[in-house]
Design a protein around this nucleic acid. Sequence first.
DNA 1: TTCCATACTTACCTTTAGGTAGGTACTGCC
DNA 2: GGCAGTACCTACCTAAAGGTAAGTATGGAA
Lengths: 120, 120
Amino acid sequence: MELHMDMMDSPCGLDVSLKVIGGKWKPLILYHLQGGPARFSQVKQRVVGISEKVLIQQLRELVAMNVLIRRDHQRVPPMVDYALTPFGETLVETLRPLCEWGTQNRARVAATLASASSQP
Amino acid sequence: MELHMDMMDSPCGLDVSLKVIGGKWKPLILYHLQGGPARFSQVKQRVVGISEKVLIQQLRELVAMNVLIRRDHQRVPPMVDYALTPFGETLVETLRPLCEWGTQNRARVAATLASASSQP
DNA sequence: TTCCATACTTACCTTTAGGTAGGTACTGCC
DNA sequence: GGCAGTACCTACCTAAAGGTAAGTATGGAA
């Protein structure tokens, strides 16, 4: 009962956040759109390693969650850009600490992973 | 070239962070260990919905990355507890904003998901 | 006509993550 | 002996995510 109250006092919304930006690519996509709107091809360049198919998919999902807005400039060849919504901006803010942590601990994590993979 | 310099000025460590805590369950596990060490069975209770097998697996991985420490009290029945390392504490700090965001936007996200699933 | 650029779709496949069920190890108690 | 508690292991399976390759739509330029 006491534990139950504790859970009520500090509900964790991580499950919600993860539903919106969970997965390998979404956080990175959002990070790269911080700098302002970008065309599909630009996003693809910035998010190194992502396949076109997966990028399209992830962008579509982020648009569906109102985190991103897609603007079609009605041109040929197509010209489409993606930008953070105000809602999306509140979300990408929360990624900053995580990004910094990763940057600061990149070497340490890499070393740990390397030693872990050399042990069977 | 200019874009290239830009990437150097603000390297993104999100890929690193995601390697350590990516997935459905790790963020939640870490969140629940903020309150202090917990026995395996306690963690399982707190992280609602996780299977025993997956919990074991995730805990092992987090221990391997030095985010958690596992203490075996050498008892029978077994008594084992898990706690955040100082390193792990720095990481769980970065989850706070994400957790708050999720909490604040839980209703909004739920509504969006509901309307998305009612459209074929 | 063909080719180009851009963003997207589809089919099929592989990889990864998560899940269910059965079982183990260990000591203590009945 | 069986049962209990606790944490873990293993086999097998399903679901989800990611990936490769081929293709489409559109207007404009050569």
